[in-house]
């Protein structure tokens, strides 16, 4: 206990990084003065939320750079993939990182969900935040799915064709829904443009907004969930 107190004294470690960290913490008003050791441990949260956020940050930065080289038109979209691979300096790296990080993000979001569920961290008062998280999961899937079409190769074309034909099987509205999503009845240039706008503008902005809400609520609902602390809180209730 003494050691921990000493660390908190601040005087011993002073450098720009700690200052920056404190800034971050203070700016977000998220700084609870203390968190309990079990909440910090890797084995309780696996840092899944943070890791997901990390992959999303990678997606944002590589995605922005990729936008500099990409034209959402046929067949230039595919030619741009070739240019990234063969001409753009480190272009292959940008695309690979964006791709693998996207897969990691989908995977992490899923695991995050399962972990939260099994820890019971969705219980009141966090139930609405669980819904926000579920929405984020859906948006992540949509982000990945819309990005899937952009290289305009055989896999992406037929993958999206299969996906959109599922949507068309909804009775009454299905065909119309697909028409709205693709901007036509088949996957074509309009679909590519729509998927691009969704992938690069609408969905990322929505995700950023929801992540903000997600984290704000996390803080407001008592920070990181710990079964024991909730139990103790519960027992304190009248």
């Amino acid at each position: 206990m003494e050691k921990v107190e000493r660390k908190d004294a601040d005087g011993a470690i002073r450098n720009p990084l700690t200052a920056l960290a404190r800034w971050g913490a203070e700016l977000k008003h998220m700084s609870r003065d203390r968190v309990r050791e079990p909440q910090l441990g890797f084995r309780h949260t696996w840092y899944l939320g943070a890791l997901t956020l990390g992959t999303f940050t990678i997606q944002l930065s590589t995605g922005l750079l990729l936008m500099l080289y990409y034209h959402p038109s046929i067949p230039q979209a595919y030619a741009d993939m070739k240019n990234l691979q063969f001409v753009v300096s480190s272009g292959f790296f940008l695309r690979n990182l964006h791709r693998w990080s996207a897969q990691a993000m989908v995977l992490l979001v899923f695991i995050h969900m399962a972990k939260v569920f099994y820890r019971g961290a969705f219980r009141p008062p966090r139930e609405l935040n669980w819904v926000v998280g579920s929405t984020l999961l859906l948006l992540t899937l949509l982000l990945s799915y819309t990005g899937y079409l952009l290289p305009w190769d055989q896999t992406s074309y037929w993958g999206v064709t299969v996906g959109s034909s599922i949507m068309a099987s909804v009775p009454v509205l299905g065909e119309k829904l697909r028409f709205v999503l693709l901007g036509g009845n088949t996957v074509n240039a309009n679909a590519l443009l729509r998927f691009y706008v969704l992938h690069a503008v609408i969905l990322p902005l929505s995700v950023i907004a929801l992540i903000g809400i997600h984290m704000w609520r996390l803080h407001q609902d008592g920070g990181m969930y710990s079964p024991d602390s909730e139990e103790s809180e519960k027992s304190e209730q009248p």
């Binding site: 921990v4 660390k7 404190r22 971050g24 913490a25 203390r34 968190v35 910090l40 840092y47 943070a50």
Partner: peptide, 15 residues
């Protein structure tokens, strides 16, 4: 109990 700052560092390192 540990300061929030340390949690932030740990998460940053994980990322």
């Amino acid at each position: 109990s540990i300061s929030y700052r340390e949690l932030l560092f740990r998460e940053m390192i994980a990322i």
